[in-house]
Design a protein around this nucleic acid. Structure first.
Lengths: 342, 342
DNA sequence: CTGTTAGCGCTTTCAC
DNA sequence: GTGAAAGCGCTAACAG
């Protein structure tokens, strides 16, 4: 049953007190006796008034209690990724303490303007697919925290992707005779799994994928290995479907790689499966390393060698940066996790 | 670089026109010449005014252009479920036409009151885990559409879960000698995989799981099979981790079932894997059926026998119900998909 | 087509 | 503790 539509004013009249008192009962407990406050709250509950209208309150106070979490791509894609899920969980957990809610927003939306007036700030997880959003975020007067990439003058949370990628790659590469292939995540703007040739790589954006690629290439250079430009694959989404296609192409190529550098654990896991199907021994015939350190990477056989980053903490730190109005650029730790896959 | 903070008023002064004209330029194109409108829009763009403040506009109009999508459980859980993702995609696709945004909201939140004033209505996907939300939704004066369950007097989108479950189960059960086990989804309030005994089932809520269970039991009754109360498992989340535990328990039990009725494809897929690991032939030694009809169910070997429902369309219809202020209770079609697993 | 104005529901100061 | 009042930024009605 729908109840009468109460406002601060009407409920004040009903209870025979002033509007200020109602407002204070909900927002400023110190402004009235706790006895009176309890009475008022109970009466409101009874009558079906659930507190001051948030939209009006937000207009007046300039604060809504909602922050926008901009995911780099469409919500359905992002959300099925264990790494992104962990991150969201971290953000939500941190904001929960201040009873702040999260508005999920897709990085492929046309504009942040549709929602910016409803939120107190943005956390932007990964460079948004739609580049327009980047410049909008740079211009907005709302607080913005970026994660896994940087925006002019915004506080941020990152790990050193290049260094981590370099270190894990160095771990997998042993001699200059090694045949190295890279299964990269979202290296170019294509919906399909495909090889990426060197000339297409010029536009290295600000994405983590390109930082990881840099790291891999650093390690190859150091070992005097030439990735001739046929050994890099683009995987459009971090899931088994697209990743196993890339793995299959790589592992059935003429010069079969014996080192597979994968830009996510999901990709590495898929590669592991494909290798098994093809009867290729890991790590004897092919060493595989991942990136992220998701749970499943520790459960598989052989265990995955990977870069372990704590996405949950990343989410927490990003949220705290936003709440605390800090302007830090955090660089979080990671750890190399050496499994049997390399 | 952050730009000056413009308001409708200040920008009107700046451009030397009235506030009404600015407002009309953005909201009611028919109220001024398109030439003037273009001029104004261009000037605003130039100056960094991105349109009327949405919060203020929503307060005035009583419409925000945001709808709340309440997921039955925590967002991270829901979002990794392909069925829920499909649904979200459908909702988003339909709302996109009217440039309406979606605020994702967790069914385990304490209250909808924190956000209700920011949204024009709610779509509630599955009965929320926190029962408080149900009564709040029944009382709110916002429009509410429920999906996969019903709320007093709310328009809804459902499929006939009981009938579908009955039909798919009848398809799998062949003789009264069959040993039937059920791998159920969220049958009781426990975080852990466990057997469910009959006496615990009394509280049959409004969840789809219980409707499916009813259907399975109908089929068992019809075949004169007694599910003695040791053959029903509770799986807390539709993922491999929890499902394979249940499947393992079932398939290593003393009276090994030769029919496994699974309440989701994710569960059935896990059961398929476990059976393979245990060297149990599907369907010869054990017939397995799922529910949902996700893509992966068609790619696996043997292909899964399952109930195919179109979650994308479900999402679209739910969104349309909300937009059209309809009060229908839709019952969508489903189809039995007969694969080699039964 | 423009300018003026009331009011959406609230918070916060100020004097009592 | 209360009541009055200004104003957050906007929309819509109305008179010109």
């Amino acid at each position: 049953m729908k109840t009468k539509h109460w406002t601060l004013k009407t409920i004040a009249v009903e209870l025979g007190v002033s509007t200020a008192t109602i407002s204070n009962a909900f927002n400023r407990p110190d402004q009235l006796s706790s006895k009176k406050r309890q009475e008022i709250l109970a009466a409101c509950e009874e009558l079906g008034y659930f507190g001051p209208n948030r939209a009006a309150s937000s207009l007046r106070k300039g604060k809504s209690g909602i922050i926008g979490l901009i995911l780099s791509d469409r919500i359905e894609y992002m959300v099925s990724d264990p790494v992104a899920s962990q991150f969201m969980q971290g953000v939500a957990a941190e904001l929960e303490n201040d009873s702040i809610n999260v508005l999920l927003f897709s990085g492929s939306s046309a504009s942040i303007n549709q929602v910016k007036d409803f939120v107190d700030g943005f956390i932007c997880y990964g460079a948004p697919r739609n580049p327009v959003l980047r410049s909008e975020l740079e211009k907005t007067d709302k607080r913005v925290v970026t994660v896994d990439f940087n925006l002019h003058a915004c506080p941020s949370v990152n790990i050193d992707n290049r260094k981590a990628a370099y270190e894990i790659a160095r771990q997998a590469i042993q001699t200059k005779e090694d045949q190295v292939a890279i299964l990269g995540l979202r290296l170019i703007d294509s919906k399909f799994t495909c090889r990426v040739y060197e000339h297409e790589l010029l536009d290295t954006q600000s994405s983590i994928s390109h930082r990881r690629l840099d790291g891999y290439l650093d390690a190859c250079d150091e070992a005097n290995i030439d990735i001739r430009g046929e050994n890099i694959w683009h995987v459009p989404e971090s899931n088994e479907k697209f990743a196993s296609l890339a793995a299959k192409e790589a592992l059935t190529a003429n010069n079969r790689p014996n080192v597979l550098l994968c830009m996510s654990d999901m990709i590495a896991l898929s590669a592991l499966k494909v290798a098994k199907q093809l009867g290729i021994q890991v790590p004897q015939q092919c060493r595989i390393v991942g990136f992220d350190g998701i749970d499943e990477a520790k459960r598989c056989i052989p265990e995955l060698t990977t870069v372990e980053q704590n996405s949950h903490i990343k989410g927490q730190r990003a949220a705290r940066l936003l709440l605390e109005q800090s302007s830090d650029n955090l660089l979080l730790d990671y750890a190399l996790h050496l499994g049997g896959s390399s």
